[in-house]
Amino acid sequence: MNANSEQRRRERLDRGIKVRSDGIYSLMSYRELCYLVLPRAVLITGMLILPLVVPTYWQKVVSYVCIYALLTLSFDFLAHFVGLVSLGGAFFVGTGGYFAAILNTVLGLPPLLSIPIATILGAFICTLLLLPCLPLRGVYFAIVTLMYPLLFTRVIEALNILGGTDGMVGVTNFTNHYFIIIMLLAFLFGIRRLVNQDLGLVLRAVKDNDQAVRASGMSITYYKTIAVFIGSVMGCLAGAYLAHVFEWAGLSSFALDFSILPIAATVIGGAGTLVGPVLGAFILVPLNEWLRDFGTLRIVIYALILLAFIVFRSEGIMVYGMRKYHQFEKWVKV
């Protein structure tokens, strides 16, 4: 037989439980119900039993993973649902961390008060500082979010305030995996719901087409401000909790890692899926920890993995997985 007659192509069919409108499903059997609920259930139970099953050394990593996952969620939300590419992970973590440290060491608030107050206060300050660049379009937001951490480290260093280069020590220890896991799950499902609600649709519209939003009588800056506040709440929560895990807030709270790793995790997990980037953080952060034995060589391995993902699976794990899960595939003869 010649090669032509054997040419086949892959045909993809959607599974028939999705209705035309988003978020409404038609379920005909328990099997379809399981099909719908199972991934969510696996994710939630998986995260909840995680602190119980991991070995002692890895216990602390659970908290780091959740901190990075929150930052990644914040990045994915801002970048893919509002169109603001934020490199502000370090900015948010630093602001949240320092606020938590001040509230805890100076005012003597317990962690369960200092974390929420630092989160809200920090997010408020971050939003206020980012406000001037919100009416602008283009890369300015990314540049400004990257600039603030650099600015703050130099200011703290030069003026020797807030503990100077030593940082603020003596923060009460508060390492509660369930606190941060539940926060992460709450934000994950909350943001997923938000982006499909009317307010979320407006935010997505700002990304899609800001001129049309203006022509509809809505201020783009106002909606961007709301989105940045939501994004920085997640970031500052991560920072405030981190300060209590480290029992310290210092210049390295403004480290660039907090800005870069979320982007890498988003690339690996699948941009715009929200769950994907969180999974990306769950892969990258432990990997980072595991490769610690290799010393600085781990950066090379790290970079190679990233490169491989960008070249071979640029859509990310989650998009790929969702396609495999939601569609039947079969080979048909052409």
Binding site: D22, R204, A205, D208, Q211, V213, S216, G217, M218
Partner: peptide
Amino acid sequence: RPYYSLPAYKNLVIPLFA
């Protein structure tokens, strides 16, 4: 200038939110 990533009726939900 429609919102290309949204269905037609969701395109109108946005101005209706104004």
